[in-house]
Design a protein around this nucleic acid. Structure first.
Lengths: 133, 133
DNA sequence: CTGAATCCTACGGGATACTG
DNA sequence: CAGTATCCCGTAGGATTCAG
């Protein structure tokens, strides 16, 4: 091989059963992580979540909470009062996730400016048409 | 308010400008992270990526690589040979991201079984119709 | 207050074919 | 080898309405 092989064994990233994919699928939704962040401080009510997670619709809040509950990431506690009061709380598993997420948010904060600049530069070079936003 | 306020100041998770959302949007795609993982070992060629990232289509590989390049997460190096040879390499910023990702994959591996069980249990309770898959 | 049910649309992403 | 260009479809998710 005159061109030489890389010598680097590029290992396959398995599609199925890949832990990377799994966590991502679980967290990929538009709202899951934001809900986890909003609930990280302790039990929180439905309406509080609705206000905390800016921009979320009532429907998506419900759906996402159901999925989180299904995965065992939040618990749902109904207080049989009137008016009804429902509290959501992160499970220990979700708290661990939240801790790991901190690494990501930290990364995002450290590089957000750089990334924004990179985008602008790229667009200036490869997307001249959308320069006058 | 006889029910009392919670005392817990549920802070708002801002929609715009939220670093959490930003990193997620950037990584939320179906393939971004898997490409980053596949490229973590060093420079890698287009076709090698295509084989490494199981299940990806040529189209999505190209699109995702372009976005990663745009965000300054990968560099694209064209070797003017014949046949053409293009190498993609993670930038330092992306390497940091990859490191943070390790925390997530670790979390996923530690809890995948628990989560799967949680799902099964939830479905058994709340989705009796789809029990005979 | 805390949802569930419907309706509807945008867009991510797959399959396929063509190109330098 | 390394892409681009089209076509097409499923579904995430928004708006709105009804209900316990």
């Amino acid at each position: 091989m005159s061109q030489g092989n890389t010598g680097v064994t590029s290992q396959v990233v398995h599609a199925e059963g890949c832990p990377v994919r799994e966590v991502l699928d679980r967290v990929a939704g538009k709202w899951s992580v934001m809900i986890i962040v909003a609930a990280a401080h302790g039990p929180i009510r439905f309406t509080e979540l609705e206000r905390s997670v800016e921009g979320i619709s009532r429907r998506m809040l419900t759906l996402t909470l159901r999925n989180l509950e299904r995965d065992g990431l939040v618990t749902r506690t109904v207080h049989p009062t009137v008016p009804p009061k429902v509290e959501y709380e992160l499970t220990p598993v979700a708290r661990e996730l939240h801790a790991s997420l901190l690494g990501l948010t930290d990364w995002a904060e450290r590089h957000r400016v750089t990334i924004a600049e990179s985008r602008a530069a790229y667009d200036a070079l490869h997307r001249p048409e959308l320069l006058d936003a």
